[in-house]
Amino acid sequence: MNKKGEEEFSYTLKAHRFCFNISGRTKKTEIFQGRHQTFKGADGPEMLTLLPADLERRSILTDSGMGFVRFEIYDSYFRRLAGSIFGPNGSLSIRPIDNGRDPRLRRLALEMKQRLAAEADPLCFELLAAQFTHTVLTMNGLRAKSQSVWGLDVRALMRVRDYVDAHLREVIRLEPLAKVAGLGPAPFIRAFRASTGRTPYQFVTQARIARAKEFIEIGDRSLSEVAMAVGYTTPSQFSSAFRAQTGMTPSAYRRALDAG
């Protein structure tokens, strides 16, 4: 704390960081790359901050109620995703944005907030990482260089479905799923959606809930056992996903079956 009771903080980035400010304000914010100052200003609610790796951010808060959604993506993963979207390119980098209000990034931030509240699994956030990467790079003028992707062929789609069915009780990650289809992460997302009308996360979630309903209908497992059997680590995570898909909680679904 400084003499005026204001909180002062700083951090150096080793990853690309995207923050959406929910509450609180900064009196002063400066961003440095080495000794060179690249930004000077202040932040308020609903402001967006996007910083590349290897920058330093220094801020003084005007109050202690700062709250924000933070999303980080390490440089190596960022570049793999970027390469799978745009192909080999020597300028796959992002520029700093502070006090931004880009509606695409704002929608991403709000979705991150909702997914965090719903305890979404890693696949969801990996898809958001790919969407984030695509958005910030197209903001830098690379839209015309985005590679065209067609839908998955029938055999690739069947391999993906078989993989999901065989791994429902495990954490399903984006890169192994894309590898099954023979594509990089970002082209796989686009090809899968073109083929099914759904994101891989939506497909996996629907498969999990369909399997969970089968287990509940058989009736020989507790709801916590059903949750674990279809890949949910907490009852609240399972209940949230089940209700989003069916309109009722797992316990309400079981009661409805018993009443019928």
Rank of each mutant, 00 (worst) to 15 (best):
I172H: 03
I172E: 06
R173D: 08
R173K: 13
R173E: 13
R173F: 12
L174C: 04
L174M: 08
L174N: 05
E175S: 13
E175W: 10
P176E: 05
L177P: 06
L177R: 07
L177S: 07
L177E: 05
A178Q: 06
A178W: 02
A178Y: 04
K179M: 03
K179N: 09
K179G: 08
K179F: 05
K179E: 08
K179R: 07
V180I: 10
V180R: 09
V180L: 04
V180H: 02
V180G: 02
A181Y: 01
A181N: 06
A181D: 04
A181M: 10
G182T: 02
G182W: 00
L183A: 06
L183D: 02
G184T: 01
G184N: 04
P185E: 14
P185I: 06
P185V: 08
A186D: 01
A186L: 10
A186E: 12
A186P: 11
P187S: 01
P187V: 00
P187E: 05
P187G: 00
F188N: 09
F188W: 05
I189M: 15
I189D: 03
I189K: 08
I189W: 08
R190I: 11
R190L: 14
R190T: 13
A191T: 04
A191E: 01
A191S: 05
A191K: 06
F192Y: 05
F192G: 03
F192I: 07
R193M: 09
R193E: 15
R193W: 04
R193C: 14
A194N: 08
A194Q: 10
A194L: 14
S195V: 00
S195D: 05
S195G: 07
S195L: 11
T196C: 09
T196A: 09
T196E: 08
G197D: 09
G197A: 07
G197E: 03
R198N: 14
R198K: 13
R198F: 12
R198G: 12
R198D: 06
R198E: 15
T199L: 00
T199K: 05
T199D: 09
T199Q: 12
T199V: 04
T199A: 00
P200H: 06
P200I: 03
P200N: 01
Y201L: 09
Y201E: 11
Y201R: 11
Y201T: 14
Q202P: 11
Q202I: 08
Q202V: 03
Q202D: 09
F203E: 12
F203Q: 05
F203T: 08
F203K: 07
V204I: 08
V204F: 09
V204D: 01
V204K: 05
V204R: 02
T205S: 14
T205M: 11
T205L: 14
T205F: 11
T205G: 13
T205Q: 12
T205I: 12
T205C: 15
Q206E: 15
Q206L: 15
Q206V: 11
A207N: 15
A207Y: 12
A207E: 15
R208Y: 07
R208I: 09
R208S: 09
I209K: 01
I209A: 10
I209N: 04
A210D: 15
A210H: 11
A210V: 11
A210I: 10
R211K: 15
R211V: 13
R211F: 15
R211C: 15
R211E: 15
A212E: 09
A212C: 06
A212P: 08
K213N: 03
K213S: 12
E214Y: 12
E214W: 10
F215H: 00
F215D: 04
F215P: 03
F215E: 05
